[in-house]
Design a protein around this nucleic acid. Structure first.
Length: 136
DNA sequence: CGTATGACCATGC
DNA sequence: GGCATGGCCATAC
């Protein structure tokens, strides 16, 4: 039994977070803050970190937790082989140990999927799509 | 219930 | 651009 009844992290919320993390494609990464925005509900980046920290071992193979990095493109985990897992996917780290988010950042779910499952899209998605349009 | 810690982040110097 | 601070939220003791 938990003491706090209203401020704990509901399993349903964890599942929603895991659901979004599962959408991050192989070879790309997302940030704790972006996942929080996509899940919506006003949750914050730290909540995403907490949910992933509580990720059961058996679920680790179904949820690509390694693809979630901090806002600087760096690894926040310690002792875990997160960097090695990402490098195995082709993600490159620079000399500072940071990932170039401009290149590897997942622009978020497409509008259709988000609408069907009740999630938010990122401004990045629109920007990413616009980037493919000729400027002139 | 206060304090400390943690897979965060924006801000300010 | 690295480092400190404050704010945020959940968990453990």
């Amino acid at each position: 039994m938990r003491r706090s009844s209203e401020h704990d992290l509901p399993d349903v919320l964890k599942q929603r977070i895991y659901e979004v993390v599962r959408q991050v494609p192989y070879g790309l990464v997302s940030t704790y803050g972006d996942i929080a925005l996509i899940v919506g509900g006003g949750i914050e980046a730290r909540t995403v970190g907490q949910a992933l920290n509580a990720l059961p071992k058996h679920a680790a193979q179904a949820v690509p937790w390694q693809r979630i990095v901090n806002a600087q493109g760096g690894i926040s985990t310690r002792g875990l082989q997160q960097r090695a897992l990402l490098e195995a996917e082709g993600v490159v780290f620079d000399a500072r140990g940071l990932i170039d988010l401009r290149r590897y950042r997942w622009p978020g779910p497409d509008a259709t999927w988000a609408a069907v499952h009740g999630y938010q899209t990122l401004p990045l998605r629109a920007a990413s799509d616009a980037e493919q349009l000729p400027l002139f």
